[in-house]
Simulated assay, not measured.
Amino acid sequence: MANHIGRSWGGPGDCEALCPCPKAPCGLVDVDNVSEACTQHPPLRCKSIRTSHRPEDCPGTGRDVVVAMKRTAEARQAVIDAAADGERGFISPDLLDALDEYRAAVEHEAAEHIREDSWGRRDRWGRYENESRERGMEDAADLIDPEVEETP
């Protein structure tokens, strides 16, 4: 097996989400399975690879995030295509801002659901049932929506 590679910094990102290459469990692309239709990962494209790891070091999680990112990007593009003004394709910048604001609101709502669920996992004395799991849930919510401060 060859290395898992990605063009985004720090792990899989938009480049991996939108390319046709099959994804490894971590969401990156296995060098041996690069699609020739891909504009990002084939070595002959001469693009920089910004993140990689060996298969034995693969964290094994992240593919679902990449699939969700692809779905979000495709849905956003479908709205833009539907709103395009005739054959010339003019789009109001306000539409793009509204789409980005909507996505931020959905991400914030998802993070708040995760945070709310973590409070429901306390015992009758207010302690977490599983401290490491709760910390993981809070960290996940912070990754989704980092601008929100935790509420006590």
Rank of each mutant, 00 (worst) to 15 (best):
T61G: 04
Q40P: 00
P55C: 07
E36Y: 14
E36C: 12
C15K: 07
L44I: 12
P20Q: 12
V34Y: 00
L95W: 07
P55I: 00
A140M: 13
V31K: 10
C38R: 03
W119T: 02
C58N: 08
T39H: 10
R45P: 11
A82K: 15
W119E: 07
S52L: 07
G89S: 10
P42R: 08
D117I: 08
P22N: 09
A37I: 02
E109N: 13
A141I: 05
C21M: 12
E116H: 10
T61P: 02
D57G: 08
V34W: 01
V67Q: 01
R71T: 14
M137A: 13
D30K: 02
A24N: 10
D117A: 14
E74R: 10
G89D: 07
T61Y: 03
R54G: 07
E36W: 09
I80F: 05
V79R: 04
G10K: 00
A37Q: 09
I49D: 01
W9T: 05
L96E: 13
R122A: 10
A111R: 01
G89R: 03
D142V: 05
C15Y: 09
I114F: 05
L44Q: 15
D57K: 05
D97T: 12
E116L: 06
R124W: 04
R88C: 12
H41Y: 13
G136R: 09
D85A: 13
T61W: 03
E36D: 15
M69A: 10
G86N: 12
R103A: 13
C19R: 02
A105H: 14
V67L: 06
A24Q: 02
A68P: 04
G126R: 01
A24K: 00
T51L: 00
R76G: 11
N33Q: 15
V29N: 01
C38W: 02
P93V: 04
K47P: 02
S8T: 06
T51R: 00
V34S: 00
A105K: 15
P43T: 11
L44W: 15
E131V: 11
E56I: 06
V65Y: 04
N33M: 07
A37S: 08
H108L: 04
D81P: 11
P93Q: 02
P93I: 02
I49G: 06
Q40G: 08
R103G: 10
R54C: 03
S8H: 05
K70S: 09
H113M: 13
V29Y: 00
E109F: 12
R127N: 04
N33A: 14
S52K: 07
V66P: 01
E87M: 15
A68V: 02
A83I: 09
A111H: 01
R54W: 15
W119F: 08
G62F: 01
W125A: 08
D97W: 13
W125K: 09
S52F: 11
R45M: 14
